[in-house]
């Protein structure tokens, strides 16, 4: 065995032991124990993996591990709702806040109030959405889908990561503009919608870029993207605007804790996550899913929440999805 080999082994062993023995650097100040970050999507999707990369980088700044807790369901609201209801505002439980947290209360009775039940911390990034179909499907382009749907109302099914997600609302907007009727099937997240469209259980999939490896391998066909400009990775795929739907959907998201958090703790978390989205390793992971950092500080994020809620209210009203 070479000396190099021995050294690497010793180094690796030390790292493992070090990680196991690592304790809080200063017992007085926050954080003194691991922080739980709720990701309200199934493990393995684009949100989950990008949040893991961000959390890993932020944990180095905080000096404590950030443990990801996947609480999927309800279009990404089960996790934040659970946190708002049950967690203490001590900074040890925080959650990713998808846009559904603001939208779902407009559509139905829910257990949380987005204006009151959260302490918003920092805004991080947004998604690239797209609509795909199986490579074996009859649909070669979006035009085929519209034609088929006109002849067979309600027969076209699409998988989304949940009712009330941007994907659901966006598809309904598209359907309303084209004068067609589509049927939504709500799943819990990307891993499930990938399997559903790949196995042709649903005809279409509307989801964030978790479909990328499958599209690259030619197993799925990308019909459109919902960004403002064409994706550099898929220059041949049209945007919503080019298809005649004047919309852009990127569903930006950030993180928040339960209401009533100490501003000092909020500031610490904000700084750690700000550094994380500036970390080149994080930017590289985000780029794999066609995501770019979209940083907003605590105050801007709060303002943004109010704006989004208002614009969502208009969309929900026009689509007739508002709660009675």
């Amino acid at each position: 065995m070479s000396r190099y080999g021995l050294k690497t082994i010793a180094f690796a062993a030390m790292q493992v032991v070090g990680a196991l023995l690592a304790t809080a650097a200063n017992a007085q100040d926050y954080p003194t124990k691991p922080v739980t970050l709720i990701v309200p999507w199934p493990a393995g999707g684009s949100t989950d993996i990008s949040m893991r990369a961000i959390a890993d980088s932020a944990s180095k700044v905080l000096g404590q591990p950030i443990v990801i807790d996947n609480k999927a369901g309800g279009g990404g609201t089960v996790g934040p709702a659970t946190m708002a209801a049950a967690a203490k505002p001590d900074g040890y439980t925080i959650s990713q806040i998808p846009i559904t947290v603001f939208r779902l209360p407009l559509m139905q009775e829910v257990s949380w109030d987005p204006a009151k039940d959260f302490t918003y911390i920092v805004h991080l990034t947004g998604y690239t959405f797209g609509v795909t179909t199986s490579a074996e499907s009859q649909f070669k382009s979006w035009k085929d889908v519209v034609e088929f749907a006109k002849a067979n109302p309600g027969k076209v099914t699409y998988a989304t990561p949940g009712t009330g997600t941007s994907l659901h609302v966006g598809m309904e907007q598209i359907a309303a503009m084209s004068g067609i009727k589509l049927t939504q099937v709500p799943f819990k997240g990307g891993a499930e919608t990938n399997a559903a469209v790949l196995g042709q259980h649903t005809m279409l999939q509307a989801d964030s870029t978790g479909w990328r490896p499958l599209v690259d391998a030619g197993k799925l066909r990308l019909l459109m993207v919902w960004t403002g400009a064409r994706s550099p990775n898929y220059p041949d795929v049209p945007t919503l605007k080019e298809l005649g739907y004047p919309m852009v959907y990127d569903s930006p998201f950030g993180i928040a804790g339960p209401k009533g958090m100490d501003p000092k703790i909020v500031a610490k978390l904000h700084d750690a996550f700000k550094k994380a989205v500036e970390d080149p390793a994080v930017i590289a992971t985000l780029a794999k899913y066609d995501m770019v950092p979209n940083y907003k500080n605590t105050d801007d994020y709060k303002k943004f929440v109010v704006e989004v809620t208002e614009s969502e209210r208009k969309v929900i009203d026009t689509l007739g999805l508002a709660k009675k």
Partner: peptide, 25 residues
């Protein structure tokens, strides 16, 4: 396929991606 069948596999998927690899076909 890059589809994790359970939470443990999803953690492995995360490890792959953070290392710059994309499990898939």
């Amino acid at each position: 396929l890059g589809i994790p069948p359970n939470v443990v596999m999803a953690l492995l998927l995360g490890a792959f991606v953070i290392h710059g690899l994309q499990p898939g076909p």
